[in-house]
Design a protein around this nucleic acid. Sequence first.
DNA 1: CATAATTTTCAGTAATTATTGAAAATATTA
DNA 2: TAATATTTTCAATAATTACTGAAAATTATG
Lengths: 164, 164
Amino acid sequence: MKLKEAQEEFIQLWGNFGTQWGINKTMAQVHALLLTSDEVLSTDDVMEALSISRGGANTNLRELMVWNLIYKVSKPGDRKEFFQAEKDIWEVAKRITRERKRREIEPLMMHLKRLKEVEGNKTESFTTLISDIERMVGRLDTVSETLMRAEESAFFGSIIRLLK
Amino acid sequence: MKLKEAQEEFIQLWGNFGTQWGINKTMAQVHALLLTSDEVLSTDDVMEALSISRGGANTNLRELMVWNLIYKVSKPGDRKEFFQAEKDIWEVAKRITRERKRREIEPLMMHLKRLKEVEGNKTESFTTLISDIERMVGRLDTVSETLMRAEESAFFGSIIRLLK
DNA sequence: CATAATTTTCAGTAATTATTGAAAATATTA
DNA sequence: TAATATTTTCAATAATTACTGAAAATTATG
């Protein structure tokens, strides 16, 4: 397989994978494009490479910056802005985890807490369910945090080994 | 808060949460309804409770059975089929994990493996990236497996404690 | 086996979500 | 500051995804 082919296939693959996990397909593709590009890319480069509109390119690039997955870079002697992806895939995973936690997990936990305030004494099974869900979500959160931190540092290698 | 209110709020909450994780909203709501119902429910009960059509109720109930999250139950002296949810939330998490692995993670891993077969010698950074992604996905997979197994059994309590 | 009850399917439609492209806003240069 | 390049916004539109409801298929009953 040629490199170009492989890159294009990866972009499609990552886009489809994103879709299945509630991430906008184009955003995932833009991310994949930048991840697999050795050079920094301008908005026009992204438009051209993915055949998308200026508006789409701009919106998705800015959203990726909110997620801290890409950065703006300027080239001396060029007015345009260029973009570069964070290439350390563990850092990428950590930032996606962090952002989803902030946007989804935390609000979910708040809601669940409220739902336990149910009147009456016939409600045990309901509150137990909600508590169990709370515990599960909380634990998944803890685990992903721990994994990310552990991967980051060789000191925690032993924990990783435990999980194999 | 009254129990009925809380249940309805939970159904909405779970539906919205599902949407953000690439799970069909109605399917998540049907699941939430059954999770929070003490009695088994018929297709008509589901239609009524969620104000959805017969087709929608049927489709989503059957999909939930494919995921092994609900079961058919029959009542003696009644032609209708009734449905009941797996209530153990860890079992639920395990089955969702298993199904997503089968449907998404495994095909993704296959694709990534193929993508590493790139010609030429200028491609090191690309193949490194793909390998890193492979490793990451594989590890997240391992961790979730381990977590589920550990939760299942008190014998593994010490591993859980390590992750706190 | 005919009838009735129930479940399933799926073409058509509705609802949701994403994209375009051009105008407005902003930034840069001379 | 005017002219120009670049970025951003967002109403209109397109694409995708989900839902309805009635007909067809299946299953149970007498």
